[in-house]
């Protein structure tokens, strides 16, 4: 554990909590992609199956459980409790366009051809692209609520901090996991355009709107 990883984990946790609180407080999930949230729930489910097979630390298990519970809670709020506020006609990205190719890739490129390892690889690849329905939704409506943009910034920062962590671990421990690194870089690159808009607009007090 190093400071970059800890900050990355906390940033990830912050993102998840911002989104949950936003939905709970406003009693609305307008502007949030339910597809992305389903994909994140699937990411956590397939990645954290090792909760049952491997114990690493209390911190590790507790964070995994919190991520899992929060992501299912978000999906529940969106599709059941506050379903009336869900903007489904703007959330039109087809999940199978991500899940099917990513599933195929996980079968072909992995560290070890075992069920748990393939599911872990699947979750790493899927996480890299799971935000696309959300970004697609914002590009369709042309804007995002400020709180939604804070959520996206925290979520994007998490993987960017992990990249710094991987560089650090490579030099200090000689540890590297090429699958996680490549997917993590792809994931971070997908947020770059958003980071630019966030810094140039949201941090100056304006709402996030896309240039016409």
């Amino acid at each position: 554990m190093n400071i970059f990883r800890l900050l990355g984990d906390l940033s990830h946790l912050l993102a998840i909590i911002i989104l949950l609180l936003k939905i709970w407080r406003t009693r609305s999930c307008a502007g949030v992609s339910g597809k992305s949230q389903i994909l994140f729930a699937l990411v956590f489910t397939t990645r954290y199956l090792d909760l049952f097979t491997n114990f690493i630390s209390m911190y590790n298990s507790a964070m995994k459980l919190i991520y899992l519970v929060c992501s299912y809670a978000t999906v529940f709020l969106m599709y059941f409790k506050f379903k009336a506020t869900y903007d489904s006609n703007h959330d039109t990205f087809r999940m199978e366009f991500l899940v099917v190719p990513v599933g195929g890739l996980a079968f072909l490129v992995n560290h070890d051809f075992t069920p748990l390892e393939i599911l872990w690889t699947f979750s790493i690849y899927l996480e890299a692209v799971a935000i696309l329905p959300q970004l697609f939704m914002i590009s369709k409506t042309g804007e995002a609520e400020t709180i939604t943009s804070h959520y996206l910034f925290a979520l994007g920062s998490y993987r960017a901090l992990y990249i710094v962590n991987w560089v650090f671990r490579f030099y200090t421990e000689g540890f590297f996991d090429l699958i996680a690194i490549v997917a993590g870089c792809v994931q971070t690159i997908l947020y770059c355009d958003f980071f630019y808009l966030y810094i140039t607009k949201v941090l100056k007090g304006k709402q996030l709107t896309l240039p016409a």
């Binding site: 590790n60 995994k64 075992t114 872990w120 996991d177 699958i179």
Partner: peptide
């Protein structure tokens, strides 16, 4: 390189 099955990162 990561040990398959035992991942310490989240």
């Amino acid at each position: 390189r990561a040990k398959p099955g035992g991942k310490d990162e989240l």
